[in-house]
């Protein structure tokens, strides 16, 4: 395979991987910081209730 293309592919994977990791960590931190306490019972009740929608 052409080494230029190979370099492009590997470079692309690395760059996009870094961007993805960066934003992923950012989102995770944001979710942690802006976490909203929700009542766990709400989900339990929803689980029990019937409802296709």
């Amino acid at each position: 395979m052409d080494p230029v293309l190979l370099k492009l592919a590997v470079g692309g994977l690395a760059v996009l991987g870094c961007i993805g990791l960066f934003f992923g960590v950012g989102l995770a931190l944001a979710a942690h910081k802006f976490a909203v306490k929700s009542n766990p019972m709400v989900e339990e009740v929803l689980e029990v209730l019937a409802g296709a929608q």
Partner: peptide
């Protein structure tokens, strides 16, 4: 990349707005 960014910004607005302005 643009599709990823759109979903990222939507998710970010969703997370932040949920806390800041319920």
């Amino acid at each position: 990349v643009f599709i990823g960014l759109v979903s990222l910004s939507v998710q970010a607005v969703d997370t932040i707005l949920r806390k800041v302005n319920p």
